[in-house]
Design a binder for these strands. Structure first.
Lengths: 246, 246
DNA sequence: CTGTTCCATATTGTATACAGTCCCTATATC
DNA sequence: GATATAGGGACTGTATACAATATGGAACAG
């Protein structure tokens, strides 16, 4: 891990910046799949890597837990979150609703500086994709949605979408196939063009299809061993199909 | 402050519950205006009140800061947040968008248990209002929107609206007049009736008008002394009216 | 050979100590 | 009398110590 060099390099003076640096480093590592879902995050090891005490690490982990990027179990420490299929569906449903709802405000507020910044993100993502820079491409894909949400100049909504975008990357890390990451690329450019052209309804359609496309590419049947489905395994009707209660 | 008795009474064993208790106690006190915006929150005093060490208090304050209910300034401690007018407008704008966007899902998922729970909240709010139980009424007003958001069974969206509702209470504490709290009462019952009747479009209209009504009742010109208006004080047109700070 | 119990180890939860920063006030100087 | 400066007090930021808890393995009984 090239983490400790990063942390040591940009050791900002003021305390708040330092905390943010730790939080951001962990967040980015989780979002771009350098830290796998389920990976344990022992406080001691992280404290050594970042050259701080456990106190600062705990602060970062607490925050990441509120953002649903790590799970915190009492006396058992922190680990990178492994969203359940239900959680994954809720995240994508929320994104479809939120990002489409924001289209009107985005179109109204879209300025030249926004456009150039967004175009640059699309380009960089495309290049990273072509170069096989997987981690960077994932990061840039989330960054596009995050930057887009900021156009509307509504901080609460922007941070909401920001959190959802990061959680989506985590969902893809758990359930995504190779195509999950790859197929997004063209969509972002298209959505941007529609927004710039003021075609609100078509922009909403593309956004919806874009997010649905990612969700469809997920595979929830995989070797997910979190809580085995005992009904399907041992139910009285065999493994044909059993309706799970709850 | 009747806080320490509360905290001591429900001293739950497990550590997570304890933290939640502290967080909830502070959050509720801020939301229902028992703690005024701008009030300082020294860690020592809170630690003594809750009979824990500063460590646990810091954890709660960190979280409340992320929820924008308190502000945390380096080396200067925590205080109850005082949202700026811009922030206030953004919060209400976000609520209008989010809560209206959720109407379709709410109508589709609205069950009998939801209806009874929501009706009870409306009734209790009305009673509290009539009895002059201001704090309780405010709490119940937020609780209505929070419970309503949960109907849609989308956790991310529900917690988003939950945070916005609590921040709104804080905004009202800063800029609200007497009518800000009072006039909400009837609206909730009306909105609930429209949702139960499946009248989506009218429900959205009422929700919008409801939130706009609250926003309009706010007074942003008041004695806002955060950064004194030196132009008004020393400007070439003299002091039309001066208010004493703190 | 299987299953259970107990202990050692590792890791987290909490409190506390110490250092650093800010603010306010008192004092001295102009 | 007004302003600048130095000192004291109060509070936060961080690290560390200690206690509590879970985990994994070893020893032992069946």
């Amino acid at each position: 891990m090239a983490m400790e060099s990063n942390a040591a390099t940009r050791a900002e003076r003021t305390p708040r910046n330092r905390d943010d640096t730790i939080h951001r480093a962990l967040s980015e590592a989780i979002v771009d799949h350098r830290l796998a879902p389920g990976a344990r995050l022992p406080e001691d090891a992280l404290a050594e890597a970042f050259e701080v005490s456990r106190t600062s690490i705990r602060k970062a982990l607490q925050r990441l837990a509120l953002e649903h990027l790590v799970t915190l179990r009492t006396n058992r420490g922190a680990q990178v979150a492994k969203p359940s299929p239900d959680e994954a569906r809720e995240v994508f449903a929320a994104r479809r609703l939120a990002e489409c709802a924001l289209v009107d405000w985005v179109v109204d507020a879209l300025g030249d500086d926004d456009l150039t910044a967004l175009h640059e993100l699309v380009d960089r993502e495309r290049r990273a994709q072509a170069d096989g820079a997987q981690h960077e491409a994932i990061q840039l894909s989330a960054a596009f949605h995050i930057r887009l949400a900021r156009v509307a100049h509504n901080a609460p909504f922007a941070t909401f979408i920001e959190q959802l975008a990061r959680r989506s990357s985590l969902v893809i890390a758990v359930y995504g196939s190779a195509s999950s990451v790859g197929c997004e690329c063209g969509d972002h450019g298209e959505i941007l063009a529609l927004l710039a052209g003021g075609e609100r309804e078509r922009a909403r359609q593309w956004m919806t299809r874009h997010l649905e496309g990612i969700e469809r590419s997920l595979n929830f049947d995989g070797e997910r061993r979190e809580t085995p489905d005992f009904n399907a395994l041992f139910g009285r009707h065999g493994p044909t199909q059993t309706a799970s209660e709850e």
